[in-house]
């Protein structure tokens, strides 16, 4: 298909990142949304695992009875224990900062990206070119699947390790001269260039 010229690419990428900030009050960062989404799934599972069948009151009553039995406490000492038990407990700090957007909204954002691309493909009546892709890796489903899944694993793991991807580090971090973003962007562009040159040489 025919792609946008250089100047329009620059305008569109910058426009999306600026609109994201101006409209939503959040920095544009796609891998951060993946992190928030997978954390929401992981931590919800962990929360449900740790829940017991006893209610809070039943649990405290059972603990009190067990403590009295274990230490052979008198009623007077038990009253002291009761007073201590009724001291309001500070809520434990959450493991992670509460995400500002819910997992459902992150999911909606991802669906919207796919729909936007589908709309573009429909209106253009054309799809993204992949001739070089098949020329590089062949047509065997197992080979293609390994490259895509393996590549995806590296992308997911690496972006989270580096704390950002092309949007958060590459566009929004570099343009604000953030040292971590500059170094991450040099690293992933450098590794991408070396890998692609190697793939081209092997083709």
């Amino acid at each position: 298909m025919t792609y946008w010229p250089l100047w329009l690419c620059a305008l569109a990428l910058a426009g999306v990142a600026l609109i994201h900030w101006l409209l939503l009050g959040r920095m544009f960062a796609v891998s951060g949304r993946f992190t928030a989404l997978t954390d929401a799934l992981r931590l919800r599972k962990k929360d449900s695992d740790s829940q017991t069948s006893l209610s809070q009151e039943e649990l405290m009553e059972a603990l009190r009875a067990a403590t009295l039995a274990e230490f052979g406490l008198s009623e007077e000492q038990a009253a002291t224990l009761d007073a201590e038990l009724h001291v309001p407990v500070q809520p434990a700090p959450p493991l992670l900062p509460k995400p500002k957007q819910s997992a459902a909204v992150h999911l909606l954002f991802f669906v919207a990206i796919a729909l936007g691309a589908a709309l573009s493909a429909h209106l253009a009546g054309a799809h993204s070119d992949r001739a070089l892709f098949f020329a590089t890796f062949g047509h065997h489903p197992l080979a293609l699947g390994t490259v895509l899944f393996g590549g995806g694993l590296l992308v997911g793991f690496g972006t989270r390790m580096a704390g950002g991807c092309t949007s958060g580090h590459g566009l929004c971090g570099v343009s604000r001269f953030q040292p971590g973003s500059l170094l991450a962007t040099v690293s992933f562009f450098g590794a991408g260039i070396l890998t692609s040159l190697l793939l081209g040489a092997l083709r």
Binding site: G163, L194, T195
Partner: peptide, 23 residues
Amino acid sequence: TIPGGILFGVGWALCGACPSIAL
């Protein structure tokens, strides 16, 4: 920063997708 960036770059060059591109 550097190891994460390198892993991401290798992965992007292989599958052609940074996170939003897969979508």
